[in-house]
């Protein structure tokens, strides 16, 4: 990891973006970096579009990542990756789940789910939902994505996996471990 890394995590409220950012926070702390995370709670967590910021480096001021400045976008849903693509800096990468979750305007027929999203995303797509179901349950999709992120960013796998598994209920550890492994190997 370079000295300063800005990771934007986006998805649909309830998908586990908060958990993902906290894993990265724990990882950074373990590695001796300064780190700031910014989260959104409350109304925005109810199935709306959510973004969480993770900034890691020697000394971090603002907890927010501005447009055009993210090194990595980790997206738990394809449309959300596209929505926040303008936050990515030139040469940055998007690691995205190919899962599609229909927003309410699409459900009601007021809008259409955009086609050809993946062609617009510079980076790697992961079929996180299928891999999560393979690991045991759709809820493990965020661990799949974290596995993919760990590999693509070249992070210390042992420390990262420990950061993930130490913060989840004991009975889901095996499932999340498998999900992480599947994500790690998928990219």
């Amino acid at each position: 990891m370079s000295v300063k890394t800005d990771i934007l995590i986006v998805g649909v409220g309830g998908q586990g973006t908060l958990l993902a950012s906290r894993v990265l926070g724990k990882y950074a702390l373990e590695k001796g970096y300064d780190v700031k995370l910014s989260e959104v709670h409350g109304m925005a967590q109810r199935g709306g579009s959510v973004m969480t910021y993770v900034r890691i480096g020697d000394k971090i001021a603002s907890p927010l990542i501005d447009e055009g400045r993210a090194d990595v976008i980790l997206a738990f849903e394809k449309l959300e990756a596209l929505r926040y693509l303008h936050y990515l800096k030139e040469g940055g990468q998007v690691i995205y789940s190919t899962q599609e979750i229909m927003p309410m305007p699409v459900v009601t027929g007021a809008a259409e789910y955009p086609q050809g999203i993946e062609e617009k995303l510079p980076g790697t797509g992961v079929d996180a939902l299928t891999l999560a179901l393979e690991a045991g349950n759709s809820k493990a999709a965020n661990s799949v994505m974290l596995g993919a992120l760990c590999k693509k960013m070249g992070l210390d796998r042992e420390v990262f996996e420990q950061a993930l598994l130490s913060g989840i209920p004991p009975k889901t550890v095996e499932m999340n471990k498998k999900a992480f492994e599947l994500g790690y190997c998928a990219v």
Partner: peptide
């Protein structure tokens, strides 16, 4: 930079 024009995703029950 300009954001992409995509359908909104408001919070829902």
């Amino acid at each position: 930079v300009q954001p992409a024009q995509v359908p909104a995703r408001p919070p829902v029950l």
